[in-house]
């Protein structure tokens, strides 16, 4: 099995890799749309408009250098997220509702 090799070689002209996040509705979160190459942030923004916002719908775009993103790794799956998995008392269903009480 092989792991992903992230290229660290200097780019040969297309510019660095940028990750693009777009907001499609007012009040909605910015969601990852994809990535693209650009030599600087300004061009990344312009390219992102052309590549990921050709049909209206987009209200706002974030461009983030791909190298600036630190991600959890799949091997972390167990121990890293464990603290969130073993606390049933964080969920409302854990608690008993008194008889005759309407919750909502």
């Amino acid at each position: 099995m092989s792991e992903q090799k992230k290229s660290t070689a200097p780019d040969s002209g297309d510019g660095a890799l940028w990750e693009i996040f777009v907001q499609e509705k007012q009040g909605a979160p910015h969601l990852h749309a994809g990535s693209l190459h650009a030599p600087d942030a300004e061009m990344a923004l312009q390219n992102a408009r052309d590549v990921y916002a050709r049909r209206g719908r987009v209200l706002s775009i974030w461009v983030v250098p791909a190298v600036a993103i630190t991600a959890s790794s799949p091997e972390d799956d167990g121990p890293f997220f464990e603290p969130g998995n073993d606390k049933v008392y964080r969920h409302p269903q854990f608690y008993k509702v008194p008889r005759g009480v309407k919750v909502f």
Partner: peptide, 26 residues
């Protein structure tokens, strides 16, 4: 023109997807 521009965009989406597998677009 809009259609041809879309095709360019589709090429870019796909090159990006290929790059996640560890190969450079160049």
């Amino acid at each position: 023109i809009a259609k041809v521009q879309d095709e360019a965009g589709h090429g870019l989406y796909l090159y990006c997807a290929a790059e996640t597998l560890g190969i450079d677009r160049d």
